Amino acid sequence: MATKPMTKTQLVAALADATESDKKSAGAALDALSEIITKEVAGGGAVTIPGVGKVYCRERPERMVRNPATGEQIKKDADKVVKVTIAKALKDSVNG
């Protein structure tokens, strides 16, 4: 059975313990990292987090989709989607 994911508060506390700093500076660092990743990916770039993976934006072309309620075919405009590729080191550590 799966456990609950780590919350931001728990992550900040763990980060503060690991870096031997206070929770306020650990929270600020986590917020700064999130902001940097958001700006870079929104601008079309990619961010590689060593040992974790790569976050990037991929463009999807215009395509035909089906409304599941009515079965009607409709055209969906091109859009962008954020993707994460997990690092091999993380995959290997999980699979043991």
Rank of each mutant, 00 (worst) to 15 (best):
A26S: 09
I74C: 02
L15N: 02
R63F: 10
V84Q: 06
R60E: 04
R58D: 11
A13E: 00
K75G: 05
E40M: 11
N67D: 12
E20G: 05
K54R: 15
G27T: 02
A78I: 07
S21L: 12
A2R: 15
A28Q: 14
I49H: 08
K54C: 01
K88N: 10
A78S: 14
S93G: 01
T19S: 14
G45Q: 04
K83L: 09
K39P: 05
T85V: 07
S21Q: 13
M6I: 08
I36Q: 12
I49M: 12
L30T: 01
A29V: 13
K80R: 15
P5R: 07
D77C: 09
I86K: 09
D79C: 13
P5I: 00
I36S: 14
T19W: 06
A69W: 10
L11G: 04
D17Q: 13
A87V: 01
A16T: 02
G96M: 00
I74W: 00
V82T: 10
D31W: 06
K83I: 08
L90T: 05
I74E: 08
L30S: 02
K54F: 08
A87F: 00
V94G: 03
E62R: 12
K83D: 05
L33N: 07
G27M: 04
L11I: 03
E62C: 05
G96Y: 03
K4H: 09
Y56Q: 04
K83W: 06
A28F: 03
P61F: 08
S21H: 09
A69L: 14
K80P: 01
M6K: 09
D77H: 08
A78D: 09
